[in-house]
Simulated assay, not measured.
Amino acid sequence: MPRALITGVTGQDGLYLAELLLGKGYEVFGLVRGQNNPKRELVEQQVPGVQIVTGDLTDLSSLMRAMTTAAPDEVYNLGAISFVAYSWENARLTSEVTGLGVLNMLEATRLYSGDDLSRVRFYQASSSEMFGKVQQVPQSEATLLWPRSPYGVAKVYGHYMTINYRESYGMHASSGILFNHESPRRGPEFVTRKISRAVARISLGLQDSISLGNLDAKRDWGFAGDYVDAMWRMLQAPAGDDYVVATGETHSIREYLDIAFARVGIDDWSDLVVVDPRFFRPAEVDLLIGDATKARTELGWEPQVSFPELVTMMVDADLDEQRALAGR
């Protein structure tokens, strides 16, 4: 039975990945920060087969203990402070967790592996936010990185550190440059979930409007459940490498709003959405669209859920949740 350790197991990617690996017969360990972590119960409810180990990406000794306990064949480093807007408010903490945390996890893996540095396969969750001020459309593995947020800068550090460990030590270490991927499990602070939840509440008469930032920002949005399959495929490849994971389509916030409101029978949402300058980024990333040719040809990966299907899935899930909360 293969064994896997997932950091960031409480996030949407961690939950979907844990389900995928458990379904493939893995013994899965999830790293949770602190014994009283409020999200621990979420993991225990949604993926009860996961064995919880405690650790902190900023504390190498705790990661070494977690590695010894889990004895993994594969390590998936998904843990990060991942809300981009917050990274401007606390750039240092974002850098320590999202950037230096990768170094700590790589080092813990290297030290645990001993003389056979290729026996534990390592996945790093890189991000399309690394492209920032895009220098090429669409973006591929060879596109120059130009991050536009402290989060993006921290991800670039972790990305290059993963490459360095692969090249310096011969580790089977891969980075998945994942473009925006969403799901009903997405946190409500992220714009896609913020919209789907607000649309559900507006349709039920529980909320009057929603405040958003730049409605013309464009992203390459896919389904998180599809993207964790790409992560697993990377670690089954003969050698570590870097892969863009994306749909190859770009859509604006306005398009997301069109589909979301149409799902609840609202065609004109102009009076229900307030553009608030507070939600504009200090340095905007206007257009992200990925070229996943390499993942498609080398890993056999293809996205399965379309953009309209994704938006509909999220709105329907939030309708169910809000009805239950309102006792309807």
Rank of each mutant, 00 (worst) to 15 (best):
residue 85 A to P: 12
residue 138 P to A: 15
residue 283 A to S: 00
residue 160 Y to S: 13
residue 239 A to C: 02
residue 268 D to G: 14
residue 137 V to Y: 15
residue 191 V to A: 11
residue 251 H to S: 14
residue 122 F to H: 07
residue 33 R to K: 11
residue 76 Y to A: 06
residue 49 G to I: 15
residue 146 W to V: 02
residue 256 Y to L: 05
residue 307 F to P: 03
residue 16 Y to Q: 11
residue 122 F to C: 10
residue 32 V to E: 00
residue 288 L to W: 00
residue 76 Y to D: 00
residue 164 N to I: 00
residue 178 L to I: 12
residue 271 D to R: 11
residue 208 D to F: 01
residue 231 M to L: 12
residue 191 V to K: 05
residue 58 T to Q: 06
residue 167 E to H: 13
residue 46 Q to C: 01
residue 59 D to P: 14
residue 42 L to T: 14
residue 308 P to G: 14
residue 221 W to H: 15
residue 292 A to N: 09
residue 320 D to N: 13
residue 269 W to L: 12
residue 314 M to C: 15
residue 185 R to Q: 15
residue 65 R to H: 08
residue 239 A to Q: 03
residue 9 V to S: 08
residue 112 Y to M: 09
residue 117 L to E: 01
residue 231 M to C: 14
residue 10 T to C: 09
residue 312 T to F: 07
residue 303 P to Q: 05
residue 310 L to W: 13
residue 20 L to M: 07
residue 106 L to I: 14
residue 95 S to W: 02
residue 315 V to S: 07
residue 174 S to N: 00
residue 39 K to P: 06
residue 117 L to V: 06
residue 120 V to G: 14
residue 204 L to R: 03
residue 64 M to Y: 05
residue 143 T to L: 10
residue 48 P to S: 10
residue 223 F to V: 03
residue 90 N to Y: 05
residue 32 V to S: 00
residue 191 V to W: 13
residue 269 W to H: 12
residue 46 Q to Y: 01
residue 316 D to E: 15
residue 257 L to Q: 03
residue 47 V to Y: 08
residue 224 A to F: 09
residue 232 W to P: 00
residue 294 K to F: 04
residue 234 M to L: 10
residue 1 M to D: 09
residue 170 G to E: 00
residue 34 G to P: 10
residue 44 E to C: 04
residue 316 D to Q: 12
residue 85 A to C: 12
residue 243 Y to E: 01
residue 187 G to R: 02
residue 113 S to G: 07
residue 143 T to F: 14
residue 192 T to E: 13
residue 321 E to W: 05
residue 208 D to W: 08
residue 84 V to L: 09
residue 49 G to M: 13
residue 5 L to H: 12
residue 122 F to M: 02
residue 287 L to V: 07
residue 289 I to V: 15
residue 272 L to Q: 04
residue 129 E to Q: 06
residue 100 L to C: 11
residue 216 D to L: 11
residue 228 V to D: 08
residue 143 T to Q: 15
residue 221 W to E: 07
residue 298 E to S: 06
residue 225 G to W: 03
residue 100 L to W: 09
residue 184 P to L: 05
residue 66 A to E: 10
residue 138 P to T: 08
residue 276 D to P: 02
residue 227 Y to K: 03
residue 292 A to C: 02
residue 251 H to D: 13
residue 113 S to T: 00
residue 298 E to D: 15
residue 192 T to S: 14
residue 20 L to D: 03
residue 227 Y to E: 01
residue 247 T to Q: 03
residue 153 V to Q: 06
residue 162 T to L: 01
residue 128 S to V: 03
